[in-house]
Measured scan of single mutants.
Amino acid sequence: DAEELIELVERALKEGREIILLGVRITSEEAGKWFIEWIRRFL
């Protein structure tokens, strides 16, 4: 579910982890915020 995915992304970014989803590397909080917004819009 989308909320679970958002929580995972937020937690990983807070822990300083690198996330790779759909071939996109997300390493900064700014990118994470963009990704979370995208999830909310399309899922």
Rank of each mutant, 00 (worst) to 15 (best):
E4G: 13
L8Q: 08
W38D: 00
A12W: 11
T27Q: 06
R17F: 13
V9P: 01
I39W: 02
R41Q: 11
R11H: 07
E29C: 07
L22F: 06
V9K: 00
I39M: 08
R17K: 10
K14Y: 02
E30V: 14
I20H: 03
I20W: 04
L43I: 10
G23S: 07
E3F: 15
E15G: 04
E37G: 06
K14E: 07
E3A: 12
I39S: 00
I39G: 00
V24P: 02
T27S: 09
A31K: 07
F42Q: 04
I20L: 05
I20A: 00
K14S: 08
W38H: 02
E4L: 15
L21S: 06
R17C: 15
I20M: 03
G16I: 15
V9N: 02
V9D: 02
E37L: 09
D1G: 13
G23W: 13
K14R: 13
G23L: 13
V24Q: 03
L22Y: 01
E3T: 12
R40A: 06
K33L: 09
I36V: 06
A31V: 15
K14A: 10
I26W: 04
A12T: 05
I19F: 04
I19T: 03
V24N: 01
R25V: 11
I36G: 01
K33Q: 08
F35I: 13
K14T: 05
E18Y: 10
W34I: 11
F35L: 10
I36Y: 07
S28I: 09
E37Q: 07
F42L: 11
R11A: 07
K33T: 08
I6T: 05
A31W: 14
G16D: 02
S28N: 11
I39N: 00
E7S: 12
I26Y: 03
R11G: 03
L22M: 08
A12C: 15
E37R: 05
L22E: 01
V24G: 05
R40D: 09
E37P: 00
F42K: 02
K14I: 08
L8I: 07
S28R: 06
V24Y: 04
L13I: 13
L21M: 06
L22G: 03
E37F: 05
L5Y: 07
R41A: 11
E10N: 12
T27P: 04
D1N: 14
E30A: 14
E37W: 09
L5T: 03
A12I: 13
E15L: 06
K14P: 05
A2Q: 09
A2G: 07
E15W: 13
A2W: 15
L5W: 11
G23N: 04
L13M: 09
A12Y: 06
A31G: 11
E7Q: 11
R11L: 06
A2S: 07
A31I: 15
G32K: 10
K33W: 10
L43R: 01
D1P: 13
L5N: 00
V24R: 01
V24A: 03
R25F: 12
F35S: 00
A12E: 06
I26N: 02
G32A: 13
I26Q: 04
E30Y: 11
W38I: 08
I6M: 04
L21D: 01
T27H: 11
E29N: 11
R40H: 08
I36K: 05
L21R: 04
S28Y: 07
I39D: 00
L13F: 07
G16F: 15
L8P: 00
T27G: 08
E30S: 11
R40P: 04
G32D: 03
E4W: 15
I6E: 04
K14V: 07
E18G: 09
E4M: 14
K33N: 08
E37V: 07
W38F: 11
I39L: 14
V9S: 01
W34K: 12
K33R: 13
E3M: 09
E29D: 10
L22R: 05
L5D: 02
G23A: 10
E29K: 13
R17Q: 03
F42P: 00
I19V: 06
E7Y: 09
R41D: 09
I6P: 03
I20E: 04
E29S: 12
A31Y: 09
G23H: 09
T27W: 14
E7I: 12
R11K: 10
D1T: 13
E30G: 10
W38N: 00
E10D: 07
K33S: 05
E3V: 11
I26K: 03
E30H: 08
L8N: 02
R41V: 10
E29W: 12
E37S: 06
R41I: 12
I20N: 02
F42M: 12
E30I: 12
E3H: 13
E4R: 15
S28L: 12
L43S: 02
E10H: 10
G32V: 13
W34D: 06
A12M: 11
L43C: 15
G32L: 15
L13G: 03
D1A: 13
A2M: 13
E4Y: 15
E10I: 15
E15K: 06
V9I: 12
F42R: 03
I19Y: 03
E7D: 12
E10S: 09
E7A: 13
E4S: 13
G23Q: 08
L8H: 06
L43K: 02
E4I: 14
I26F: 08
A12F: 06
I36W: 12
E29R: 10
E15D: 10
G23T: 09
F42Y: 10
G32W: 15
I39Q: 00
A2D: 07
A31N: 08
I36R: 03
W34L: 12
V24D: 01
A2H: 09
E4N: 11
L43H: 03
W38E: 01
E29Q: 14
L8W: 10
R41H: 13
G32N: 05
I6C: 07
L8F: 12
L13Q: 02
R41W: 15
G16K: 06
R11T: 09
L8Y: 07
E10Q: 10
E29M: 12
K33P: 02
W34Q: 09
F42V: 11
E10V: 13
E15S: 11
F42E: 02
G32C: 15
K33A: 10
